[in-house]
Simulated assay, not measured.
Amino acid sequence: MGVNEGVTVDGTVAAGWEPVREEFAAAVAAEPHSPEAQLVVHHRGRRVVDLWAGEDTDGETLSGVYSITKGAAHLVVALLVQDGVLDWDRPVSAYWPEFTGDGKERLTLRQLISHQSGLINTDEGFDYDEIADDALIASRLARQKPFWEPGTAYGYHAFVIGALTGEVVRRATGRSVQEVYEERVRAPYGLDLYLGLPASEEGRWKPVLEMLPTPEQRAAQAASGPLPDLLAVAFNAHREPPMDLIVHANHPRTRELGPASAGGMGSARGIAGLYAAAIGAFDGRAPLLEADTVAEVARLHTPGPDAVTAEPDHFGLGFKQQPAAGPQAFGHSGAAGAQGFADPVTGVAYGYTRRRFGFPGGAAPENERLTAAVLEAARAV
């Protein structure tokens, strides 16, 4: 029995979705510390699950969602390709002439957005102010020697991919990816997922909370030893002192600038709404993405192991594969445990957040059980 056995789950579910509420309550109860979590699901454009739990979290709470941000930023890239402004198979250097040397000039946008550039960080890394500044990151990476020959391997560009793809957006449109996202996606749909938190929303923001692993988890972490070299570089842990992920998410510059790799602030409502708008009619509007675009961004582009994380078969175009949801689903996770995805087959759009940083990080394990409950309910209604 978890210490949260008596925690209250608030919110609503539509008829037929009660098993999702039960699974959410079980996941929260099993935690040794309150995860301060939210879960929202849309089904074919209708919100059918809207739940939250925790001592200091409600359905309106906004917090750092880490790499969920990549999904928002790369939805913008997909929209611009769909519009004909960008071309997946055009060299990045055609948009960004300074992106050259060491094989960078041959890299296409398709390869860049699927984490194949080798530019996972600079040799010296970034401090907290710098890693919140996408323009600064892009300018430094344009001069950086890649950690592998571009286009010959792939590996997670954890804190820089949004700066790289965002610079392509800026060169092609004259607008930052944050500005295009605000104008084309967030504002029209009223989404609580921000790339740059307005001052008017600061009152709803709550910090990401520290990881509190069990003694057994601490022992396992200690036994695993230091991070592998490329993993440390990609997560900005190769500098002294190593970057603290929680400090990054809670940093005022991160909230202000909304770096496109991992600096978004939002809620499960915002995440689920983003993916609902991507694949289906939402809020009286047509889907953002056409069926062919959805199929292309979801299609596996990186077979084999990730050179940074060692995960297999990792990426489509800017989005992660979603094996628990199905082969046509696409989305992204966030370091504290968040998860967002769309599945065009079932019409499900899923958003999950937790403010308590889960162990060991990445998509929290309860997402698999929650996803299974959601898909079962979707197929039954």
Rank of each mutant, 00 (worst) to 15 (best):
E22V: 13
F24S: 00
V28Q: 07
P32S: 03
Q38R: 00
V40G: 01
R44G: 04
V49K: 11
D50R: 08
L51V: 13
W52V: 01
A78H: 04
R90F: 10
S93T: 13
L109T: 10
S114N: 01
S117A: 08
N121D: 11
T122Q: 09
D123H: 12
D127C: 03
E130P: 04
I131E: 11
S139R: 12
L141D: 12
P150H: 14
A153D: 00
G155A: 01
Y156L: 00
V160Y: 06
V177H: 12
E183D: 12
L191C: 11
G196M: 04
G196E: 05
P198N: 14
P198R: 11
S200T: 14
G203K: 15
K206F: 03
Q221R: 15
G225I: 02
L230W: 08
L230V: 10
L231A: 06
V233I: 15
G258D: 06
A262F: 15
S267L: 09
R269G: 14
A272T: 00
A277F: 06
E290D: 07
D292Q: 01
T293I: 03
A298E: 07
L300T: 03
P303L: 10
E311F: 08
D313K: 04
Q321L: 11
A325I: 06
P327A: 15
S333D: 09
A335E: 11
A338H: 08
T346N: 05
R355H: 11
G362H: 08
R369Y: 11
L375H: 10
A380R: 15
